[in-house]
């Protein structure tokens, strides 16, 4: 069988690797995915960013043939995900919260099993497993049952399993949710290597920093709709950049502090809980400059720090009422 070989794409290379148009999926009265459109350029990473229940996972499940859409057009690697679902499965890999591995098998046995299910011979699957486990630094654990793996090792194996057949398009559904920071970094590096090798990746995540680090483009999704698209820098600009928080030694000096910091900020500083808070346009040197300006103005400082925009900040900036709306939603869901 040749199905394990890397396929030459039937599409010209300038055609998008993933194209989604008018995608709809409803569950009863709930429109989980409500007219989603996006494209992923070949060899790039699209980050699908949104809170829990936004419709990210449902979108991925439809793109990976696990569910049928109610409406819309889905093309992955030039293949129709509904009409040619069986063919598409040879061209994609899926990893993350929705695809796991067998806990009782060893790492190596898992990869060999998945390789053979892609149509590889046992011998080829074994050779591939050895290479993949080495690439993902799991060689030492290759013959241990997965239930003895750490969370980070499990996710690496999960990712390795999705790469057995060297798919040109890879779907990663919240690949680092629940991982410790060190393991997240490791996994990010592995994903970056894959993309450098030409793989197209669709990544869903709740974390802005993850999308920021890995994605070439981001689509923000909420209530089943894409509410913003752009590069990470474009989106951050819409959020208002980094937030500088200065805790004052004496709250009475707030007006002096605002006057001193005014030239640095992109909006009007606010005073909350004895601290001055403002958005700065540049991260580099912001703290040093702020300390110098405050010192020159004779303002006493207790603490100073820069805070990156969070998912909540993005939602607040994009929807204007994110937090409140999400609370309403939870109530609706609870009573539904």
């Amino acid at each position: 069988m040749d199905s394990a070989q890397r396929r030459t794409s039937p599409q010209p290379t300038d055609a998008p690797a993933i194209s989604v148009r008018g995608l709809v999926k409803t569950y009863g009265d709930v429109r989980a995915v409500d007219g989603v459109d996006f494209e992923v350029r070949r060899g790039t990473v699209l980050g699908l960013l949104g809170p829990n229940g936004a419709g990210k996972t449902t979108t991925v499940r439809m793109l990976t043939t696990l569910q049928k859409p109610d409406a819309g057009e889905l093309l992955v690697d030039g293949i129709d995900a509904v009409a040619d679902a069986a063919k598409l499965r040879e061209h994609i890999g899926l990893a993350g919260q929705n695809a796991s591995v067998d806990e009782s098998l060893t790492g190596s046995e898992n990869i060999v099993m998945f390789g053979r299910l892609y149509g590889m011979s046992r011998k080829n699957a074994k050779a591939r497993a050895t290479r993949l486990l080495e690439q993902f630094q799991l060689s030492d654990a290759a013959d241990r049952p997965v239930k003895n793996y750490s969370g980070g090792m499990r996710r690496r194996l999960d990712l390795a399993a999705s790469l057995v057949a060297e798919p040109p398009v890879l779907f990663l559904d919240e690949p680092t949710t629940g991982l410790d920071p060190r393991s997240r970094l490791d996994l990010w590096e592995v994903i970056e290597q894959l993309v450098a090798g030409g793989t197209t990746v669709l990544l869903t995540t709740q974390y802005l920093d993850e999308a920021d680090r890995l994605a070439d483009d981001i689509a923000v999704i909420d209530h089943g709709k894409v509410i913003a698209k752009g590069t990470p820098d474009e989106l951050k600009a819409r959020v208002g950049g980094e937030r500088l928080v200065v805790a004052l030694a004496d709250e009475a000096s707030a007006p002096d502090a605002i006057a001193a910091l005014g030239p640095m900020c992109t909006d009007t500083p606010v005073v909350e809980d004895g601290a001055v808070k403002l958005y700065v346009s540049r991260r580099e040197g912001a703290i040093v400059e702020a300390v110098r300006r405050l010192d020159e103005a004779g303002v006493g400082v207790e603490d100073i720090g820069l805070h990156r925009p969070t998912m909540d900040d993005v939602f607040l900036a994009l929807t204007g009422h994110a937090a409140e709306e999400r609370t309403d939603d939870e109530t609706e869901e609870a009573t539904a």
Partner: peptide, 13 residues
């Protein structure tokens, strides 16, 4: 329960 079925269903098996 563990989501293994989803992985199998995404394979060309």
């Amino acid at each position: 329960n563990r989501g293994l079925i989803d992985r199998f269903r995404s394979l060309p098996m």
